[in-house]
Computed example of a mutant assay.
Amino acid sequence: MQKYLLHSSFICSRLFYFFLVFRASEYIIAVTDLIIKTLPIEHRAQPARIGRKLRSLRLKRHLTVAQVAEASGLSKGFVSRVEREQTSPSVASLLSLCDVLGVAPGQVLEHSETKVILASDAPRIDLGDKDVSEKLLTPPHQRSVQILKSVMKPGGRAGVGMYIMDCDVESVHVLSGSIVLMTTEEEEYLKVGDTATLSGEEPHSWRNGSEKDEAVVLWFMAKINRN
């Protein structure tokens, strides 16, 4: 029995240092006293406009359809139909076209679109901060760049201690009021128009720099594609 109790005590002590907290609007992973916050991501498949991208790349390189067709060993009519989305190229044909245009096939297959988020439609999110209203200004499926707008009441602050965001680079820009940005080494007082940029690996926290005035800031989180 004593051996069993000692074993159970060891398991509980290990679990004390690592726990996972799930919230409806975020995942928070806590390892000892460091928090990793992740903004909500909506994963969805999007069709790639291959023909439109190939045509755009051709025009940027000042090439004609005939020149691309000759260099790729494909017919002029086929290249024209591909660009007009009237037919889909085979893998071999796509590789030939990409080789002529000097672009990686993955770049052509990536989906891109212009998405407008109206201020009134921006979804509210809850990152557990105190006296702060936050909205996600970028599409929920967007991963490379995310923009978060925070409206901080007087005395508003991050709801946890030091934390890091799930990104490679993070910037904060003050639209109105002021905030105090705290890192492990120093505190920075940021006023209207000021911007601070830090590594996604830098633990930090923040608070409204005033006890009587509201502060409005934009947070920019970027993921760097290293493929």
Score class of each variant (00 low, 15 high):
I147L: 13
L109W: 06
S88E: 12
I179S: 01
G193N: 06
P123L: 06
K149P: 06
A122Y: 09
M165R: 11
T114P: 09
E185S: 12
K212T: 14
F18K: 11
I125Q: 01
E186V: 09
S93N: 13
D126N: 07
G161T: 00
I35M: 12
K130F: 15
P203M: 06
G77P: 05
L34E: 06
Y189C: 09
K135V: 13
E202Q: 07
V82S: 00
Q107C: 10
L54K: 05
M221K: 06
M221T: 04
V21I: 15
W206Y: 15
F10K: 12
Q107D: 15
R49H: 08
D168I: 03
C167M: 07
L181F: 15
I41D: 02
F22E: 15
P154A: 00
D99T: 15
I179R: 02
D99V: 12
D99R: 13
K3V: 09
H62M: 11
F22R: 07
H111E: 11
I117F: 06
G73S: 10
V79Y: 02
L34G: 02
L218Q: 03
S88R: 08
M152S: 09
M182F: 04
S112Y: 11
E134F: 12
V169W: 12
T183R: 04
K3Q: 10
L109H: 02
L34H: 04
T138S: 08
L181Y: 13
A48V: 02
V100G: 03
D99S: 15
V108Y: 07
L20I: 13
V192F: 13
P203T: 00
A92K: 10
Y189R: 10
E110L: 04
S112F: 10
S205M: 03
E26F: 12
W206D: 01
M152I: 07
K149H: 13
A30S: 05
A119Y: 09
Q67C: 03
E70V: 11
N208T: 09
R124I: 01
L190Y: 02
S144R: 14
I35R: 13
H141N: 11
N208M: 10
P40N: 07
L95K: 14
I50A: 01
E85D: 15
A30I: 05
A66I: 14
S13N: 10
Q142N: 09
D33S: 11
L137F: 11
D166V: 03
L63Y: 04
